[in-house]
Structure formats: C-alpha cells, structure tokens
Design a protein around this nucleic acid. Structure first.
Lengths: 206, 206
DNA sequence: AACACCTTTTACTAATTGGTATCTTTTTTA
DNA sequence: TAAAAAAGATACCAATTAGTAAAAGGTGTT
C-alpha cells in the first residue's frame, strides 16, 4: 500500500506515459490537425502501442479535448504568474507573445482555429467550456480596465476586442511569414503584436 | 455542328451542372471543410449522382482546387472593377468587406484558412499558384502606394501587411461574433475593418 | 422515329481508421 | 524467485469514403 500522495513506480511511469501522450497529441494537432491525426500517429509519436493509448483515454475526442483543456489551464496559469506591475495592454501583449512563441515551437495556441466539428466536440465537454468561460471572463476584466485607462479603443465592444484577440493567437500569417525563413521567430512575434494592436494603417482608421 | 462560341443544349446543361457542382462545393467547403466534405455530399447538394461528378472533375482534390481558383478569379475581377477614385486604403478595405460579406452569406473568402494538407494540394496546382501570385502582386502594389501616401504603416514590411490582410479575410472571430445574433452582418464587417486596420489599441502601439 | 450519347442507379472495390480482443512478454511487487 | 499486473504486439472488426463498373433509362440530335 502506497503512502497517500505518493505514487508507486508503476503509477509514476503511467503518469509519465500519459504526459508523453498529451505532448505528442499537442504536436500532432498543431502539425496535422484533428482529422488527419490518427490514433496510430499518436501512439507512435508517444512511443507506446495503440491499445495502451486506450488505457489512458477512452476515445480520440476525449484525448483531443484533454489537450485543449490543458492549453486553457496553461494560459490561465501564465496569466496568474504575470508581473503585477504590467498594465492591461502589456498583459494582453505578453500573453499573446507567449501563445505565438508556443506556436512557433510546434505547439498549439490556447484557442486554436477549429473546424465546426471540433468546436462541437469541445462544446460537449463541460470541463472545457467552464475553463474557456473562466479565461474569457478574466480577459474581459482586463479589457474593461484597458479601455478605461485609454490603452484599448473604448468604442469597440469587449467581445469584438476579445474574439479578435483570440483570432490573433491562431493567425495563419505566422506560418506564411516563417516559410522562407526570412524572419526570426521574435521578429514575427513583434510584427504580429504591432499589427494586432496597432492595425495595418495605424490610425484607428474607419 | 454548333456555331463557334455557341453551345448545344446538351453542352449548356453540362455547363450549368458544373456550375452547380462548384457552387455546392463552395458552400460545403465553407460549412464542413475539406476533410469532412464527402463526394456524396457534393453530389447530393448539386443534385446529380456521384458518378456524374467524375465526368466533371477527376478527383476531390481537383474539384476543391477548381473552387479555390474560381475564388481567386472572383477576387481579381472584383479588384479590376473597383472605383478608380478609391485610395489604396479604401481599395483594401472595400475588398476585405466584400470577402467578409461573402463569408457571412455562407461562402468562402478568397484565401481560406487551410490545413497543411490542403495547402500542399493547392501548391501542386500550377493554375492556383500562378493566380495566387498574380493577386499577391496586385495587392503588393496597392500596399506600396498606400505606404507612400501614409495610409498604411510604412515601418511594416509589405509581406507582413499582406499576410495579415489575408488572415483577416478568414478570421474566425466572424463566426464567434455571429453566433448569438447580437450583431448584424454589416456591424460585424465594420468591426472587422476597424480592428484590422486600426488595431485593438488604436495607437500603432508597440 | 431511330440512333447515339449521356445520366442515373445500384452495387462494388480498396484503403483508411477508430476501436477492441487475445495472447505474449516485460516489469513490479511480495 | 514466484506470482500478479500491466504493457506490447498482432490481428482483427466495423464503418466510412474515394473512386469505378455496368446495366437501365432519358434526352437531344438528325
């Protein structure tokens, strides 16, 4: 019998394998997307057999949902650890930069651009929806303050700002800009922030 | 024998069916995406049988590529017919508004957010690549002038501006903003233009 | 009106893939 | 060292789907 809180070697190994599966799935979702990612891919990338996969996750949907949940948790953890001195705009910029760096390293942003079917899958998961709402509320509060102090455009509704912000985390231009190796990763991040917050014309145009 | 330029009734009907297939495919690509769109879907939506589909297009890839080519042609036709009085910024805004309205009506933007596999498929098509390059060059010229007259941020490289511009045509926030029916279509278009060109902070920040 | 061609229908093939059963082998624990 | 539990390998099932074959029925052309 194991002491409370301490896991047997076997269970530790089990946990490690599970983490490897989640990491592998994250990479595969980023590179191939949900539909083209096969469970054989996942098993191979994680270094275990397919039947063993199903010891950890009941289905492909559950596995993918778990990955997305972990991304939301990571984002909220990152937010919680941000320097308290940052202004609202700086916090949003910093979180976006973090999400973009994650993508540039082969990972997924916390709100990936999903097909209708994947979105339906996520909506079915109570755990995912509650976390997404929680993160959304946190960011909404930041946006509200940001508008008040004049760092964000007060004439834009909060949800317009937030959904556009989410879209920036999964903006496909990142891939296009990286193709030719013309820009270093940090340059891409900088440009994405400049465009996202400052716009293309820089005038608050229209 | 038919007069040059005039088609027999049979051939006219064939052309009409082909147009119906392309329209159906466009709608299905917009709603389900490439992977989840089956050839049975297309045949059903177009009102013909699956074997007949293959009289028009050799494969699913060829069909989808043809749809994407048509979108590029439509975009270039739209550009060509724009009011000559428009400034560069106005031309870009007008084209983006057109692409967003197309999406809001269940269509596809001229540069849809594509999975790696679909992108590879398109890259294999000479017809697609040549048109995409042509459109890109046209827009690049507009951007260059726009920077010169101070309507676009001169400190941003042209390709950063252009890829970000493309991303705006397929920005997923459009779907999110439409979900609750809170905003009318034209409001959404307006917000997307405001955010895209003016940014979230409106300061040309960072 | 008869012919020729095209479309439809039905059925099929082959490949992929999510998920599972079974048996063997390794590893952990006692 | 022996027993027990879990992981691996292999093989399989069932469903989906791109693409095709062949026969039957319409439709336009001449």
């Amino acid at each position: 019998m194991s002491i409370f809180g301490k896991l047997s070697f076997k269970d530790q190994a089990f946990k490690l394998r599970e983490a490897a599966v989640l990491d592998a799935t994250t990479r595969l979702l980023a590179s191939k997307g949900f539909d083209l990612m096969t469970m054989d891919d996942v098993a191979g990338e994680a270094g275990i057999s397919k039947p063993s996969l199903y010891k950890h996750f009941k289905s492909k949907d559950e596995l993918a949902t778990e990955v997305m949940i972990r991304l939301l948790d990571d984002a909220m953890a990152y937010l919680a650890e941000q320097d308290a001195e940052l202004t609202p705009l700086q916090r949003l910029q910093d979180l976006l930069a973090w999400a973009l760096r994650t993508r540039l390293q082969g990972g997924l942003p916390f709100l990936p651009s999903t097909s209708p079917q994947v979105r339906a899958m996520l909506t079915r998961s109570l755990g995912y929806v509650s976390r997404a709402l929680k993160l959304h509320r946190q960011l909404d509060a930041i946006v509200t303050v940001g508008k008040k102090v004049g760092e964000l455009r007060a004439e834009l509704p909060n949800d317009v700002i937030l959904y556009s912000y989410y879209a920036r985390t999964c903006d496909p231009s990142v891939e296009y800009l990286r193709v030719y190796g013309k820009y270093a990763d940090e340059e891409i991040v900088g440009h994405m922030l400049a465009v996202g917050f400052g716009g293309l014309s820089g005038r608050g145009a229209l």
